[in-house]
């Protein structure tokens, strides 16, 4: 239904409305905008390397392990203490009979962020090492689909709100996990930012 090949000779299809836009060489930092909807069709970002994206994704994957293994906070009321992980919220919601909500938290808080970083790592590695790894194009599409689901930064905000709320009920203490969640959200944002789609396409084209 949608055309998989965006390049029809010198015409580029607008990623938003699919209107054909005339391709041309751009000076540095200039961009080509769709004449119909105004969305950016192409940008000369001036980036030459995917190594930053690769580095952020690698770091992010390590931090993701720590963020999921280390406790986030401890909550203490009159001597009774409880600590939590991202996954313990999922388990508790499921135990209370809210399976679909638990699944949503698990997907947006654990599965999607890890898959997103893994996919960026895979494609960026293939480009940096100039290897023709299987299904690279499909993984590149997956990155775009997963990006809105990587909600670790939102989870970080929720952690802060939770600490504020719990502070009214008892004693809360930050644990290492909270810091790792913050680092993980920064890594995700930086990796996504440094992952230049056009550069990737160019590199993958050259591998063919």
């Amino acid at each position: 239904m949608t055309t998989t090949d965006n390049r029809i000779s010198a015409w580029l299809a607008c990623p938003e409305c699919e209107a054909p836009c005339l391709d041309r060489q751009l000076p540095k930092k200039a961009e080509l905008r769709c004449t119909r909807c105004g969305v950016r069709v192409k940008i000369a970002s001036g980036r030459h390397s995917l190594q930053p994206a690769w580095a952020f994704a690698t770091a992010g994957l390590f931090v993701a392990i720590l963020a999921n293994v280390e406790p986030i906070m401890t909550f203490d009321v009159a001597g009774d203490t409880q600590s939590n992980h991202i996954v313990s919220g999922v388990i508790e919601l499921a135990r209370q009979g809210y399976g679909p909500v638990a699944a949503l938290v698990c997907f947006a808080g654990v599965i999607a962020p890890v898959l997103h970083l893994t996919a960026i790592w895979y494609v960026a590695s293939a480009c940096c090492l100039r290897r023709r790894w299987p299904a690279v194009h499909r993984v590149a599409v997956l990155i775009e689909m997963l990006e809105p689901w990587n909600l670790v930064p939102v989870y970080a905000i929720a952690t802060v709100v939770a600490v504020v709320k719990l502070d009214m009920m008892g004693t809360v203490d930050w644990k290492a996990g909270a810091l790792w969640i913050l680092v993980l959200s920064l890594c995700s944002l930086c990796a996504a930012e440094a992952f230049d789609r056009e550069l990737v396409e160019e590199r993958l084209e050259a591998l063919k």
Binding site: I72, M73, T74, F75, V77, A78, D80, Q82, S83, N84, H85, I86, S88, G89, V90, I91, E92, L93, Q96, G97, Y98, V101, A102, L104, V105, A108, G109, P148, W149, L151, V154, Y155, I157, A158, T159, V161, A162, K165, L166, M169, G170
Partner: peptide, 28 residues
């Protein structure tokens, strides 16, 4: 759009640590 997930995450976090019986409990 994704920012509205704050409340769902908040519920998950509070439910996880709010299991201290009658002293402090959080139920979805």
């Amino acid at each position: 759009g994704s920012w509205s997930m704050v409340d769902v995450f908040l519920l998950a976090i509070l439910a996880a640590v709010g299991q201290l019986g009658a002293l402090a409990g959080v139920k979805a």
